[in-house]
Structures are given as C-alpha cells and as structure tokens.
Design a protein around this nucleic acid. Structure first.
Lengths: 199, 199, 199, 199
DNA sequence: CATGAATGAGTTTTCATTCAT
DNA sequence: TATGAATGAAAACTCATTCAT
C-alpha cells in the first residue's frame, strides 16, 4: 500500500471513532487532523472533497469494523437456526466493545443524519435495508429447510430483531448497563424457539 | 400569561422542534431566534443562561408535548392490561405525529448527548429510568391483580417494550415507513397475551 | 431626601465600588443595576445620561468617601507640621480600608482613563492638581510660620509625597502586603524632619 | 525567521501597545487584528489560545522593550553606586518614550489586572518582586563593597525607589508633565547621597 | 416615573475550506 | 503532493441603550 493510501486509511479510521462518538457536527476537521496526525490542509490534498465525504467513508469503515465478522460468521453456519444463534452470540460477545466505541454507528448515524445530512442518511437507510434482507433471507432459508414454521413472516421477525438490538443498545449506552442488550438477545433467542418447527 | 412568559414559552416551543430535528450542535441560537421571531440578544434576556439551558427546557417540553397524554391516559385505566393496551394504542395513534416531529426526543437526545452533553444525557437517563419504573410498575400491578402470571419478570418486559418501540421508531424514521412501529406494537401486544394469566 | 434622590445616591454608591475594583470597561450596567437593586432601565430614567456620567459621579463619591475626612482633619490642625503628620497618620490608619476597597480611586482612574476616557481623565487631573496645591500650600504655610526652612521647594515635596503614596499603594495592592505603604509613610515623615527649621 | 514567527511577533508587538494604552477589557481582538493587519481568525492560528494568552505575551514583550536595556546597562556598571546612577539616568533618558507609549506597563497592568485577571496579576507581582530583589541586591552589594553605610535597609530603599518612580509616572502621565518623574529621580539620587558611606 | 422587554452592534472564539510555497 | 498560513463566515454570548406600557 502506498503512503497516500495509508494516510487516507488512517484519516478514515481515526475520524470514524470521532464521528461515532461526537456526531457529524460535533466532530471538527481540526479534531480529525489532530487525531490522525496530519495537517488539515493535507486532508483535502487528494483524498477528500469535504467533511461529508470523510463522514461517508467513516460510516462504511465503522460498519465493516464492527459488523464485518458478523455476516462472515453467519455465512459459515449451514443451518438458519445456527446462523441466527451466531447472530445473537456475536452481539453477546461484542456488545461491550460496541458500547465502548460509542454505540452502534448505524443507530448513531441514523439519528445524527435524519433531516440534515441526506447522503449519510441514505447510506444508513441502505444498510438497514440490507440487514432486513439478510436476516429475513436467513429466516426464509430456515422455512425452506424445514427449520422454521412455514407461516412465519420473515421480514416481520427480521425487523423485530433489529429494533430490539438497536433499541437496547440505546438503553444500555444511556443507562450505562449492558443488561438491556443481554435481555434483548435472550428474547430474540426465545423467539427463535417459538418459530422452531419442533416447538 | 405575561408577555415575557409568552415569549419564553415560544422560544422553548420553537427551539424544541429544531433540537429534535437537528440535534444540539446542529441547532444555532440564530436558528432559534429566527424561528421564534426574536433577536438573538433577547433570548438571553429571558432567563436562559446559555444554549444548554434552552436545550434542557426544550427536552422537557418535547417529553410533555409528545408523551404527556400517554401517562395520563394510562392512569385512567383501572386494569394493568388496560393500561398496557392503552400504551400500544397511544403509539399506534400518534406515531405519525412523532415521526413528522423528527422522531422520539428521548431516542434523539440519548444519541445526541452521549459522550458530549452530560446534563442532557442525565435527563434522558432519568426519563428512561422513569419509563422503566412506570411500565414495570404496571406489570407488577397486573401480577398483584392476578391479570398476569406471577413468575413474569416485570423489569425485563418493561425494557423489552421500550427497546422495541425506540428501535422501531429509528427504523421507521430512517426507512420512511411506519410499518416497523406497527409491527413492534403488534409484538408487544402479543407478549401481553403470553403473560396473561389465562394464556 | 426624596426617593429619586435616594435611588440616585444608591446607584452612585454601589457603582463606585464596582468601578474602583473592575475599572470602567470591566463594570457593566447590568452589574450596577444588580448591585443597586434597580432595573437597568430606571438608571436612565431621570438620573444618568449614560455610563460615563455614572463613572464621573462615582469618582467624586469615592474621593469624598475615602479622603473627605483627610482634608477636614488637616484643616483642624493649626501647624503645618501637624497637618502633614495628620496626613501620614490618616493614611496609616486607613490604608487597609483603601486596599480592601480596591485601591486608591485616583490611581485606579488615572490608569483606567488615560488614552480612553477624556472626561474622567480630566477629573483625575484636577484632583491631582488640587492635591498638589493643597499639600504645597501647607508646606508654604509652614515656611511662612517658620516651621520649615525657607528654601524648601513646596511643590516639589508635595508631589514627592503623592508619588510615594500612590506608588506604594500600587505595590501594596499587587504584592498583597501593606508594608510598602507603611515604609513610604515613614519616609515622608523622615522628609518632614529634614525640612524642619530645627533640623 | 519564518513567516509564522514573524506574524506572531507582529501580533504581540501591536497588541502590546494597545494593551498598554487601553487595558485588557478596552482592547478587542478586532483592534489587535486590525493593528497587526491580520484577520481575527488567523490570530488563533498562531498558537494563541485566547485573548489572555496574548495579553500575557504582550506584557513580557513590553517589559523587555521598555526595560530590557536597563538591567543590561546596570550589569555593566561595576560599582553599586554606578548601577543606581545608571538606573536614574536610564529613566531620565527614556521617560518621554515611556509616557508616549502609554505609561509603565507594570503600573498599568497592576491596576488593570487586580481583582479581575489573576494570571496577569501574578506576572506583575513577580515582576515587582524581581525589581525589589534586583535593586535591594545592588544596595547590598554597595554595602559589601563599602560604598553604602552598613546600617542601610536595602529592601526598604529598593521599594521607595520603585514607589517614587511608578507614582511619578502616574502623575506625569495624568498631568501631562514629565517634571514629576524628573523630581522623583532627583530625590532618588539625593537618597543615594545620604546612604553614601562618605556622607 | 419605573419597568420589562427588546435591540443591534459588539464581544471572543471556532469552523470548513483554500492556496501559495 | 504536502504544509503552514490565512480567510471569512458563523458560532455563542454580552453590552449600552431605548421605549412602549
């Protein structure tokens, strides 16, 4: 990797943490430059058109950093149930890291960008749609593989899972207590029982 | 009401909308002054020490405006089940207004304030705790009144409800579709069935 | 005294302390109104044209408050030597009060007003001239009354006394130690010995 | 010298004059920017945290500018008497410049900063202490070298000299007449005679 | 007369962005 | 390319003063 690419990556990495913690308006170019150890001027050099472009790249970086392994891991599980159990295990294993990192970047960016930053908002929208598609796809796979009852509404459950996790991350972050996430995960696993074909 | 009080109320009302839509850093005193039809200077003449103080008052105002009727209405219902059904009905009836208003101020302020605005964050924390206490209190009332099974974990369910609603509001706001909220409410009502003593 | 006059006096008294401590630019109309327990608007009522007018009245008030008794007391002494000893005694007795009050208003206003507030500066200039005239007059009286040597330069000594006292007040105020004033007074009294006709 | 250093120096130089003439509160960042020919924003780009930091640097600059040569010159004189005569000569030579510059920055800052600007006040306090130490050191050297009588109280005289000069600068500035300084210097030289071992 | 409210120009400070070197 | 320096607009907040009631 060339130096320019390395610097660009560094700027994204460092800004990503800041954006996740302080939001778009709360993160200054100064802060980013300082954190990345480069000059403000050089950020514009050949790398980024403006602050928004950094924020967009930072969002992608955060997604990959926090959830990259999640989808990979789920892929490795053959059964739908296994995939969804992995989904819960993953969050149970990593929620502390997510909280320490400033919370879920999807939730943070969703709230931060609505009504103000259309492009970032669009990115979040796409992400949430992908999550819905992926999770509901797994559930439908489960139905096809006779793991889950055939009358289960896959999209409905997918979004329940997302709502439970994002809502409980907000609770945990604000109330400084991870139990809310653990309870939400427990409930998701309970739901997996109820849609199990053997239930 | 005196003129000063009227103006003060106006400043809070107008700023409350702006804060809910654009967040703390994204809302300038200029914006507030313009929206309220007063000069920047005069805002400080109305006993507002600084921007933070306005934001704190605005948060209280938003809470009362959007959820004031909720707790009142629940109080009127004698049965625990009735209270919780009212809770769902209320959200079903008002979610469009909430979305149009910029989303749930508790969720928005929770995300906006963490890591940066301690006082507002504390207010949100208190609000979420009150919600937990109130909802779990209703469930425990239901247990006492033999409406709900005695082994039900009241606090656990209370926070599931909160997570589901807040998470789904984020989804609905971002994906511009109220269905996520309706589905979350449906699930809450389903949960109420499962904890019913006659279930 | 009518109420209006009383209020006017109160404004002057309270502002006088503030001006002496914080200077002209450092004292706001807000501060004055608060300290005097009146509204900002009422200050302008029929009392004062603007802030400068208050500062001018406050200067006169401070002069009278801190040094009014000095010139009266000197008047009562028949001999020139007695007058000047009283002058020293007075400062020895009152320097702590002067320091606690924010220092000598003549010195403070002299520094505060030069290059910026012509009218106040003129007032200070007049005051210092009066002091010179009064003190040198006493010395000349002493010469006439054969208390002091006839070749003594009255104006020269008068201004030495003023310089010593004002300079030492600055030292005492800044270094938080009254000894500098006491030493200056001791030196003035020593000088009185040296110009004594019996020396 | 690099451009940045040059600009920084320029900002200090220009602000130093303004602060000495108009005081801290009376000097605005706008004024400084205009005088230095830079934009307000750029001032903060030159490692000045805030206005106070500029004022502190300006004070040091003024001290060096007006009195730097004084202590150097005194160092060159071998005898204590020579040093103190140089001290007087220096002031006699430069008092017009000091008056034109807005007066003595130590006196000005002492009055300007007391009760309000603690850091600047501390700097002034240190300066006055250094002056005391330096002057009394010279007098003690004179005693050691048998130039001055051995019973002379060095600290007492040092502060008399400072009081006389600072007090007379205030007089001269306000009454627009340098004679007060010249008389104070004459008196200091007279005092040097009286403490001379040959007197 | 007195007051509450407002005004608008002012304050210090920060920002994203540009550009000569 | 990279950087130091600059820019100008905008941020939060304060001020002396005015005036309708």
């Amino acid at each position: 990797m060339k130096k320019a690419e390395k610097t660009k990556k560094l700027i994204i990495e460092k800004s990503a943490q800041l954006f996740n913690r302080r939001g778009y308006a709360g993160t200054s170019m100064q802060d980013i430059a300082k954190e990345a150890g480069v000059t403000k001027g050089s950020i514009y050099g050949h790398n980024f058109k403006d602050k928004e472009e950094i924020a967009l790249a930072a969002f992608d970086y955060n997604l990959q950093k926090l959830f990259g392994e999640l989808w990979k891991g789920m892929d490795q599980e053959p059964s739908a149930k296994g995939k969804l159990v992995f989904y819960c295990e993953f969050h149970r294993k990593h929620y502390k890291k997510i909280l320490a990192y400033g919370g879920c970047p999807v939730l943070n960016s969703a709230i931060d960008s609505d009504d103000t930053h259309e492009k970032l908002n669009q990115k979040v929208r796409n992400t949430l749609q992908n999550w819905e598609v992926t999770l509901s796809g797994v559930i439908q796979l489960g139905i096809a593989q006779k793991e889950f009852k055939k009358e289960v509404d896959a999209v409905y459950y997918a979004n329940l899972f997302i709502s439970l996790i994002e809502g409980s991350i907000m609770l945990a972050k604000t109330r400084k207590n991870g139990i809310y996430i653990l309870n939400a995960l427990q409930h998701i696993e309970h739901l997996l029982q109820t849609i199990d074909i053997n239930h």
